[in-house]
């Protein structure tokens, strides 16, 4: 009971009863809503709303796009489409660089040729050159 000391010595929570009631209500509400969103009616309603929004906003979007494009052209500024095109080209360049990186990794991973032992003909010649300071 609220106002009494509970067994562990802490003060009882005066809001506990309210919380219990609230949680029970929330639980019931939550289940109802989960069931509601899982219906065909909900899917249809949200689909209709989205469709209406897209249809209504489409003319404004088109008009805004055209106006922006004209304004940017007048100002000699790159448009959004120009940036998109540039970004696509950059990605292509990155891919080429990645291909080169792959080839470099392959080259690095090839084991190096063993050096010739000092007694071999070329090894003797190299040793003589080193000695002569050439």
């Amino acid at each position: 009971m609220a106002g009494e000391r509970v067994a562990n010595g802490k003060d009882a929570d005066p809001m506990a009863a309210f919380r219990e009631l609230r949680d029970a209500y929330m639980d019931a509400w939550s289940k109802t809503m989960v069931d509601a969103v899982n219906t065909e009616a909900y899917a249809k309603a949200t689909g209709t709303m989205l469709d209406a929004y897209l249809s209504a906003s489409s003319p404004f979007r088109d008009a805004l796009e055209k106006t922006m494009l004209q304004a940017l052209q007048q100002l000699n500024m790159p448009s959004h489409a120009d940036f998109v095109s540039l970004a696509e080209r950059l990605t292509n360049v990155e891919m080429k660089l990645d291909d080169m990186d792959a080839k470099l990794d392959e080259v690095v991973s090839i084991p190096k040729k063993p050096t010739r032992p000092p007694g071999s003909p070329r090894g003797k010649r190299a040793a003589r050159r080193r000695k002569e300071g050439k």
Binding site: V37, N38, T39, E40, A43, K44, T46, G47, T48, L50, D51, L54, S57, S58, R61
Partner: peptide, 20 residues
């Protein structure tokens, strides 16, 4: 699958959304 119901072709026009 709730998502499958939401994106059913009768209710959700994916091309219209992506066009916008």
């Amino acid at each position: 699958i709730t998502f499958a119901r939401w994106v059913d072709e009768r209710f959700f026009d994916v091309d219209k959304v992506l066009e916008a």
